[in-house]
Amino acid sequence: MANIQCQFYSETLGMSTNIQVMLPQHSALRASRDGKLPVLYLLHGLGADHTEWGRHSSIERLAEEKGIALVMPSVGRSYYTDMKKGAPYFTYLSEELPAVARSLFPLSERREDNFVAGISMGGYGAFKLGLSFPERYAAAASLSGGLDIVSRVNGPNSFLPFEVECIFGNIAELKGSENDLFVLASRLAASQQQPPHLYQCCGTGDFLYQDNLIFRNHAIAVGLTITYEEEPGEHEWGYWERKIKRVLDWLPL
């Protein structure tokens, strides 16, 4: 597995940014994709960065075994949004990052070869991408995701003082906005678009467990198909290490 630390200038963010890219050196999947690799975008949690997955999990070995490329961006504490008082990270993530990554590395552009997954804040980001752009992603996976963002900002949370308004703006307008996954799920279910495969898991001892149940129930109620799993576990890497292996086995490769 080639493990690449890549820094480039982002026109969207107006600054240099970092991604970690892992490319399998021997992948049988390339032969059927004109030399290109299927790719999983792996999103980090709140307070972390692009190195989190490589430092805390066995993702490099697991991806090599599957023959899949990994792209891990860094978005600060943006909660994968176009911040009201900050950088447009969601536009960067959804538009510029895939284009730059494909220009530099042998990554497939086909929907059926593009996937996204994340933990905690990154689980929210993964579902936001998948629900917003179902034509681009074949699968999206949330591990212990902060999926009920309205509940997060109005209840106990890990945001810094004044950070919520910088990210989301007027909190009273957050519910029903483009940052509300419940709205995105309902909109997609009512459309004629093919939804991505959705995978969601959360440990029963996780502080986000109830939020995950609420989102799962909503997704099912509006007509989305979702693979949901729960088991004893908390908000920590021992649990995510087990579940990311499950995600890679679940991906429609």
Rank of each mutant, 00 (worst) to 15 (best):
S132G: 00
P232L: 12
F90L: 11
V247N: 07
Q210V: 14
T204I: 02
S144K: 09
V71D: 03
Q192L: 14
K175T: 05
G125W: 02
K243L: 04
G14I: 06
A99W: 00
H26D: 15
F127H: 06
K66H: 09
G145Y: 08
R110W: 03
L188F: 01
G145D: 10
T81G: 01
G205N: 13
D34S: 14
Q7G: 14
L147F: 03
G125T: 05
V247D: 08
P38N: 10
M1T: 14
L198Q: 04
G203D: 05
D34R: 14
E60A: 15
R136L: 13
S108Y: 04
T81H: 02
F159C: 11
A31Y: 08
A117P: 02
E230A: 07
G203P: 02
E52R: 11
A69W: 06
E52C: 07
F159S: 10
P196A: 08
R77G: 00
L43Y: 06
T51L: 12
A139L: 03
I149R: 05
G233A: 06
Y89D: 04
Y80E: 06
Q193T: 00
Y228D: 12
G145V: 08
G155R: 13
F182K: 08
I59A: 04
S58Q: 15
L104C: 09
S78V: 06
A221F: 00
L29I: 10
L70K: 01
L104V: 11
K36M: 11
F90T: 06
V116C: 02
V21C: 05
A172K: 14
R30I: 12
Q193C: 02
R110S: 10
G146D: 13
S177F: 03
A99Y: 02
G118E: 09
P156C: 11
A87P: 00
Y41P: 05
G76D: 09
L129H: 10
L188Y: 01
D49S: 11
Y228N: 09
G145K: 09
D249Q: 13
G118S: 10
M22W: 12
D206F: 06
R55P: 00
E11I: 03
A101H: 05
R61G: 15
K245G: 15
H218S: 03
P252Y: 09
I68R: 07
G203C: 02
C6N: 13
S177C: 07
E231Q: 13
F127Q: 04
Y41K: 05
